[in-house]
Simulated assay, not measured.
Amino acid sequence: MVGVNLVDLGPLAQLRAGRLGRRLPQLYVGLVAYGASLALMYRGDLGLAPWDVLHSGLIRHLPITIGQAVVLMSFVVLLLWIPLREIPGLGTVSNALVVGFSADATLALLERPDAMVLRIGLMVGGILLCGLATALYIGAQLGRGPRDGLMTGLARRTGRSIRLVRTGLEVTVVLVGVLLGGTIGLGTVLYALAIGPLTQLWLPAFTIELSASSRSVPTHPAPPSPRPR
């Protein structure tokens, strides 16, 4: 991506790369905002992001909240990292926990509005906020999220493209989510179309340059900038 210098470092190298005074707050602001964006779309009730279709389906069958479903699935996905030999970082573990907690906290403050115009506003606001949150989280360069690591790990091990693997994963989780009764709709389609361009728009402004020494020792070649989770 033009103007963006993302690197793929191991957990210790991520922390040794410097500028933690900016990178850590940006990481957590991004993760909290990501959880809030999920809650906005959930209260809009016009369709969720692909993985959240699955999460909303799970809560119909398990006595948990949608935020707890996010956390649960994050750790399930992390188990799949083991055969792929992906190594989690601070951002990975933080993603697995913070997004779900933030979603539940935001949902506790919001009710589903009756007016369609307000529901559309929540849906659009959730998508926009998710794009910004994605740029903040990825730009902090402290490790990819559980779902991103599954995507890039599968792409590396199978030799398939990021686009193909991501599409396959998201189609699969949407289908499973729908079978479980998850929330799919206009928001799901708009999210799929908008999240990539929105992230690309904001990522250059929020990508934090790391030290030259850290950039010289990536653990794997840095993948194209994926959607986080």
Rank of each mutant, 00 (worst) to 15 (best):
70 V>M: 08
70 V>C: 02
71 V>E: 11
71 V>T: 15
72 L>A: 13
73 M>E: 14
73 M>I: 10
74 S>C: 02
74 S>L: 12
74 S>E: 13
75 F>R: 03
76 V>P: 15
76 V>D: 15
76 V>G: 13
76 V>W: 14
77 V>I: 14
78 L>R: 00
80 L>I: 02
80 L>W: 08
81 W>S: 01
81 W>C: 01
81 W>Q: 03
82 I>K: 05
82 I>V: 15
84 L>P: 09
85 R>Y: 05
85 R>P: 07
87 I>A: 04
88 P>H: 00
89 G>K: 01
89 G>H: 02
89 G>M: 00
90 L>C: 14
90 L>H: 05
91 G>A: 04
95 N>G: 02
95 N>F: 06
95 N>A: 06
95 N>E: 09
98 V>H: 07
98 V>Q: 13
98 V>Y: 14
98 V>R: 04
99 V>E: 14
100 G>I: 03
101 F>N: 03
101 F>V: 03
102 S>R: 00
104 D>K: 00
104 D>S: 00
106 T>R: 02
106 T>N: 05
106 T>M: 13
107 L>D: 12
108 A>M: 14
109 L>F: 11
109 L>Y: 09
110 L>K: 01
110 L>C: 11
111 E>V: 00
111 E>H: 01
112 R>I: 01
112 R>N: 07
112 R>A: 03
114 D>W: 06
114 D>I: 00
115 A>T: 06
115 A>N: 11
115 A>V: 02
116 M>F: 10
117 V>S: 12
118 L>S: 13
118 L>W: 13
119 R>S: 12
119 R>E: 08
120 I>D: 09
121 G>H: 06
122 L>C: 05
122 L>R: 00
123 M>D: 12
123 M>S: 02
123 M>K: 00
124 V>D: 08
124 V>W: 06
124 V>L: 11
126 G>E: 08
126 G>P: 10
129 L>Q: 08
129 L>K: 03
131 G>P: 15
132 L>I: 13
133 A>W: 15
133 A>N: 08
136 L>H: 05
136 L>V: 01
137 Y>C: 07
137 Y>K: 02
137 Y>L: 04
138 I>E: 14
138 I>L: 15
139 G>R: 03
140 A>L: 04
141 Q>W: 14
141 Q>N: 14
142 L>F: 12
144 R>E: 15
146 P>K: 05
148 D>G: 01
148 D>I: 00
148 D>H: 03
150 L>P: 06
151 M>V: 02
152 T>P: 00
152 T>R: 01
154 L>P: 09
155 A>S: 15
155 A>F: 05
157 R>V: 04
157 R>G: 04
158 T>V: 04
158 T>P: 14
161 S>M: 11
161 S>E: 13
163 R>F: 10
